[in-house]
Each structure stands twice: as structure tokens, then as C-alpha cells.
Design a protein around this nucleic acid. Sequence first.
DNA 1: CCATTTTTATGCAGCCTGTATGTAACCGGC
DNA 2: GCCGGTTACATACAGGCTGCATAAAAATGG
Lengths: 193, 193
Amino acid sequence: MRATRTQAERREQTRRALVAAARQLFADKGFAGTSTPEIAEAAGVTRGALYHHFADKAALFIAVVEEEHLLIAMAINSAAAGEDEPGPIKAVLGSCNAFLDAMADPGRRRIMLMDAPAVLGSQTLSRIESQYGLSATVRGLGEAMELGVMRRLPIAPLAQLLRAMVDRAAQAPEEEQADYRKAIKALVRGLKA
Amino acid sequence: MRATRTQAERREQTRRALVAAARQLFADKGFAGTSTPEIAEAAGVTRGALYHHFADKAALFIAVVEEEHLLIAMAINSAAAGEDEPGPIKAVLGSCNAFLDAMADPGRRRIMLMDAPAVLGSQTLSRIESQYGLSATVRGLGEAMELGVMRRLPIAPLAQLLRAMVDRAAQAPEEEQADYRKAIKALVRGLKA
DNA sequence: CCATTTTTATGCAGCCTGTATGTAACCGGC
DNA sequence: GCCGGTTACATACAGGCTGCATAAAAATGG
């Protein structure tokens, strides 16, 4: 670290520190259980810096959620890249399983599945989700229908329902994970044309 | 109202007033956006009474959630009673639609679908849900499998997935409700043996 | 009718959030 | 290389909220 930093460097550095500290604390103690003094201290700055970069505590939380969405999408993409492509339905199921694998982290589950809906509200949440994670599912479903291997149904709602299922499955206890994956597989398979 | 009330009457009266006032405020402004002074004032008592009857704000919220669960279950049951029973799969679909009808109230959606997961946590939530709403679904699915009209799959996970789907569908905008119901119907129909 | 328990009210300590104000670091032009 | 201006950060403060402790009032039971 140089003794003097450019503004952009300072800016991004403290922003990153804040988001990283917040992600850790939100993961451990939840949104409501985490205070801005805690976050600032963990990030090594003062609350002044926090409120300079983020409008309020919720805005910082949103930044954490977006980063997490990005990480999850990357994990799913790299899992999909490692597989051969034996058809769109299998591809959709593969990304469901990759999502569940990505959700193994309890902190991530707490942030994304417990707190995010309450803090963001359903419309903000669905906007962010459709921006990050859901578009791939929509593409996969559309492709399957185009190819005639899946019943024609409203695509966006179907994608939302799929997402809702894997969200719920991710929250199930470890020992039931396999059963959930089996049930999801059966439900999706049932859509075959 | 008599000038003098028995203890049980006093107790239940203020309890009801608190739960009713809280339900209204939580519905309008959310759990985090509602303060205990507000609730007490709306109920016509002081915060002292509130904290005498409920351990904390979350306990009052839980009471609201349980009452809401009860109302929803009653609505679903009376809808089911009004229908003839043309088979367990149709019965399951019927209760899905009855649930969606019961979720038309935005305040109820806010309480049950946005705030409850964050306030209660996933394990408390699923305990309450399995106690109130999910047992009927489990029964219906088990019956369908016993009769051989539905594929044999892990029942409890399947019920959870179904609940997750209708929860998500309930949060969809009004104009997409029909599409969601269609998609759910197709997914459940896909489970036919 | 009095002692006791239950219900309700009041006051307090500590914390948190968001903002307003002050200071320090950087930047671009001369 | 200095200097006005802007951006980044720190400090101080006001208001509100939660949960508890203590006090008053109401009911119960003997």
C-alpha cells in the first residue's frame, strides 16, 4: 500500500472493506442483529465512512446481496461449463443442483434466504434476482420448449417456481437434501412433453 | 363491558387487543417498521402490558403469525368442504388455489411471506407451518401415493416444495396469478403415476 | 376485609440509526 | 509547487426504541 492513494483507490478500498465486514457479520448474526458500529469497527473505519458510501444500512446490505448473487451465478456457470450438455432439461436440473451446492454455506443462506426478502421486499428482490440468477433458467426453459421436449407453459412464472423450490430445498436439513433433489427432479421431469 | 372483569377476561381482552393492533401495524408497516409504543397505543394499553403478556416484540409477532396461520387453514378447509372430492390430486390442487385466494390480502402476504422468515428463522417457521398448514398437504400426497395415482416420492419434502411454490406464486403480481396457477397445476400433474 | 397474586403503568439505562458539522486527503489549473 | 474546490472520512448530536425494574391498581381467596 502506497503512502498516498488516488481517490478511486481510497474509495474502492474502504467500500470493499465495508462490504466484506458486513457480509461476515450479516452472515453470522443477521441483518437486525448487526449494528453499524460493529460493521465500521470490523472494517477498520468509522460510521461516517459507512454513511458516506451507503445511504443507510439497507443499502449496504443490498451491496452484500448483489455480490453474493454474483458469486452464486459464477459457481453455477462454472459447474455448467464442466458438464457435457445432454439436453436442456438436464441442463436445468444441473443448474438446480449447482445452486444447492452453492448454498451449502449457512451464512449465505441466512443472507439470501432469510434476511433478503424482509429487507429488500419482494419487488426489489425479484428485480435483482431476475437480473442475476434467473435469466439463465428462463433461457434453459425456453430452449426446452422450443425444442419440443417440454410442455409449453408461461416461462417466467415457471422459472420463479423453480427458484422458489430450490430456495426452500436449500434450507432443508443436510440429511434431507437428497430427498429434496429427488423430488425436484421428479417435478421437472414431469414437465416433459 | 362490565365495570369489573375477572382476571381471565382482563387477560384475554388485552391480549386480543394487542394481537389485533399488532397484526394491523405489522401488515401496514412491517415488523421492523413498527414500534412497540405504536402497538401499545393502538391497542389502548401501555408498553408495560405488552411486555407482561409477551416476552418481547418477536413473541408478539409469533402470536400474530399463528393466528394468521389458523385463519388461512380455516379458509382452505372451508373451501375444500365446498367441493366434491374427485380424487386426491385434484384435492391437493384445490387447496393450492384456496391458499392463493387466502393470500390475496397484501398485509397477510407481508406478515407471512416477507417478515416471518426473517423474524422466526427457518426452523421455527417450518415447525409452525408443519403444525398448522402443511399436515393436510402431507395427508393428501400420501393418499395419492397410496392409491397409486401419484409417483412414490419423499412426502414431506414434496409438501415443502409445494408450499414454497404457492408462497412464491402468492407474491406474484395480480396479472400473473393465472399463469402461476397454470404452471403449478402442470407441475403437480406431472407427478401422476 | 386483608394478604397475596396477577395485571397494568411509569421511569430508566443503554444502544442504535441517521444526520449535521467539522477535518483531512486528493485533484486540476495556474 | 501552490491553491481553490471537491471528495473522502471522522466526530458530535438528536431522537427513538427496546427491554427491564419498580411502582400502582385490580382481582382473588380465605
